Structures are given as C-alpha cells and as structure tokens.
Amino acid sequence: MKDLVNNRLELFLTRKHPGATFKAITGDASPRRYFRVTNQNRHFIACVYPLPFERHNQSFLLASEFFQKFNLPVPNIIEESGPDGIILMEDFGTELLSSWLKKCSEKEKDLAIKKAINIILQIQSTTNKARLEKNVLTKLEFDFDKLSWELQYFYVHYLRYYKKIEIDKATENRLFNELSKIAYLLSERPKMVVHRDYHADNIMVKQESPLRLGIIDYQDARLGPISYDLVPLLVERLAKPLDDETIDEYIEYFLSGRAEYGLQRIAKSDFVNEFWMMDLERALKVLGTFGFMTAVAGRTEYEQYIPGTLKEIKRAISKISQKFPQIKAVLDL
C-alpha cells in the first residue's frame, strides 16, 4: 500500500514543481513528516502535516513571520498550501548543532553555545511587541494547567504504563502534591516568549566559518519562564553533558547579556533556582514521553535515554532549595 503522505507530497510537487524529487528526513515523535526536496539543483525542506490547515491558525507560519521581523535565524517560507497541508521552506543543511559539537574544538563549542544563548535573548526581546500585537505566541503559555498536564503525563506514561508501578493512595497524594508544587512555582515566574524545544537537535549549523546558526521546530513557541529555553540548550541532547561549573558560567553569560537586548536584569540566586526547577519539570515530562513512546507506541529505541534522564532529575533535585522526597522515592533516586 502506497504511503499516503508520500503520495500527497508527490502529487503536490508534480503540480507545483514538476521534476522535483524528495527524500524522507528521519523524524521524531511528531506527527509531522519532513522531506528534503531537490529541484534543478535547489534544495528545500517540505513539512507535511497530517491534515490540511488554515493559515490564520497555522502556528509555524505565524511564528516564522513574526520572528523574521526581528531578524531571527528562521528558515524562509518558500511556499505554503493549506489544502495540501504542506509547507516548503529554506533548507538549512544537514548539520545539527548536536552532531557538530561532537567534532569541534572546545573554543568552537564555547562560541556556538554563546551564539545559541544570544538567540534565546533575541527571542525574549520580542516579548513586548508580541504582547502589544496580541500575537499568536502570547495566546499559549506555561501556566499552572499546562505544567500540571505535563507532570501528569509523566505519572501516567512513565510510572503507570512503562514502569507499571502500583501506588497506594497516600503515596499518590504526596506525589501529586509535589508535582503540583513544581507546576505552581514555575507558573508564578515571570514569562517571556520562548522557543519551547530549544535543544541542540533543533539548532542547525548553517555555516562554519564564520559560524552561523539557524533554528527550527519552533511551532510551539509561547510564553514561558525566562529559564525555559536555556535549560534544554545546556542539559539536553548533548553527547558529553556539561558539568555544573560550566553550566554556571553559561548562566552568568545569559544573565550578563540581557541588558544588551533591552531585557530586565535578574538576580542570579533567584534565576539559578528557577533554572534547576525548570530542568526538573522538563526531565519529568521527557520521562513521560519516553515511557509513552516505549510502552504505548512500541518505539523501544527511546528506552536508551531513560537512565540519563533519571540522572539529570537527581542532579536537578540536588540543586533546588525546595525538597521533593516523594519524587525521589518513587523514582528510586
């Protein structure tokens, strides 16, 4: 049986770009499918959505349009077809920052991470304009309900479905109280525009000399805690995890660079606690994703990432001023 997504893209290209060929790009847990399209020595990326879309509520297109006003390094949109559920965009190449960091020098690595941090600050500098315009990026945020949902996702898909842990009511109540505490504390933090998934697999190395980065996969951009994008950049998808001292140096760089982008200064001690709390929340949510992909979707390749995530949760908890004994107990940390 012919792949319906491939068939839809083939029909679209035959109609709009005769002679073009395409090849699937390895995807992630997303329902979107990506393809590299070649047409007369030109390359671009096709994103094929599972269903048709209307432009006025297509988050990737609207976020791209907004970010380009601020010269953020997002791909140019070449063509869009809502009825086909297809977007053609600029091709940033094949070099993910995560893979490039494995082979570059320590000096180049430091430069790349600092450039990536500057992009976070640039994204955050769009917040006031986004609020004034009532942009789509401000319609969603990491409020208490959203954060609680993510932490419940961890409980259901990691503890219940993957680990098959049976928890008595008293223990469950204590666990839920701690998860709610995380959601509440983070939901009360000041919020700015965030990418939402700013790890090294969503940052492309467009050019090595001089180094130029590009960002992708920002369709879920929204308002979130100020530390939100810095956490995945510094702790996720890195072949060699950064040590605590190096993370602290990059936190200093992030905080000291805020004034250059017209952003309010933040007390370091306050920010550091938020950073590790955000790290804890993201890691718990990621455990839920790994549990779902392994136990429900049958994608067992995600299981290999669970031990490292548990280690990161243990580190985060050790750094936070608040205590979470029930989370540690249920995860056997």
Rank of each mutant, 00 (worst) to 15 (best):
K311E: 13
A316M: 02
G308Y: 03
M293T: 09
T289R: 05
T289H: 05
R315L: 12
Q304S: 13
T289V: 15
K314E: 14
I306K: 03
T309H: 02
I313E: 01
M293Q: 15
L310E: 14
R315P: 01
Q304F: 06
G288T: 09
I317H: 00
Y305F: 15
A295I: 00
S321N: 12
P307A: 05
F292Q: 07
I313C: 13
Q322W: 11
G288E: 05
G308K: 12
K323T: 13
Q322I: 08
Y302E: 02
S318A: 12
T300R: 14
A297N: 11
F290M: 03
G308M: 06
Y305R: 15
M293R: 15
G291N: 01
P307Q: 07
A297H: 10
I306E: 05
V296E: 08
I313T: 09
R315I: 08
M293L: 15
I306T: 10
K323E: 15
K314Q: 14
P307S: 07
E303L: 09
A316V: 00
T294V: 00
A316Q: 00
E312D: 13
M293G: 06
Q322M: 11
A297F: 00
E301A: 11
I320Q: 00
A297L: 10
L310T: 11
G298W: 00
S318R: 02
M293C: 12
S318Q: 09
Q322S: 14
R299C: 06
R299N: 13
V296F: 01
E312I: 11
L310N: 15
Q304W: 04
F290T: 08
K319G: 06
E303V: 13
S318L: 06
E301T: 11
K311C: 07
S321C: 09
G308V: 02
I306H: 06
K319T: 09
F292D: 02
S318V: 05
Y305E: 06
I306G: 07
I313V: 14
L310S: 13
